[in-house]
Amino acid sequence: MAAAEPERPPLPPFEAEEDALRKVKIAEQAWNTRDPVKVSLGYTPDSEWHVNGVTFAGREAIVKFLTDKWNGELDYRLEKTLWCFKGNRIAVVYRYEHHDASGQWFRAHGNEDWEFAPNGQMQRRITQINKVPIEEKDRMFKWDRETHYA
């Protein structure tokens, strides 16, 4: 028998805005580590992801997706903002910046819809990402990633 997954507070239902905001900031902080394994632990073992028309499920697939993502999205910096919440669901808007191996900078933005299991792990993530090239002088997220969340 598999061990029970640990609780990841705050837990649903999200009734107070402060709990939903905290959940969003916890996710933002985890993603800014760019550690695919650490990030994957915030999701149920069978978590379902829908990203720009691509669907996959499970932590192994999440780790592979994030590893591939961050191998190509260098100096990644992300900001998530709570849009709305109810019950076991939260919606966020987000922006992130990164550059590729050639040095071209990009800004991406989109929306995420999250659904949580009772233990606080995300069981479903639906997102659409729009990405545009930018000049380095137009970057918005210039904070030091290593100390920003210390």
Rank of each mutant, 00 (worst) to 15 (best):
I62N: 00
F56T: 08
W70G: 08
T67Y: 07
W83Q: 08
D68W: 14
D68H: 13
K80H: 05
N52M: 00
I62E: 05
F56K: 10
Y76A: 09
R89K: 14
W70H: 11
G53P: 12
G72P: 00
E60Q: 10
F85A: 04
L66T: 12
G87I: 06
F56A: 10
A57W: 03
I90N: 00
K80I: 06
T67E: 09
K80E: 00
K64S: 06
I62C: 04
N88Y: 06
V92W: 01
V63Q: 03
W70C: 07
L66Q: 12
N52K: 10
E79F: 05
A57Y: 00
N71H: 06
Y76G: 12
D68P: 08
K86C: 14
K64T: 14
K69D: 15
V54P: 05
Y76I: 09
K69Q: 11
E79V: 15
G72H: 03
R59H: 03
E73Y: 03
T81S: 13
W83N: 11
V92K: 06
W70Y: 06
G87T: 05
A57R: 12
D68A: 15
T67F: 12
R77F: 00
E73L: 03
K80C: 04
A61I: 08
D75P: 01
I62M: 10
K80F: 13
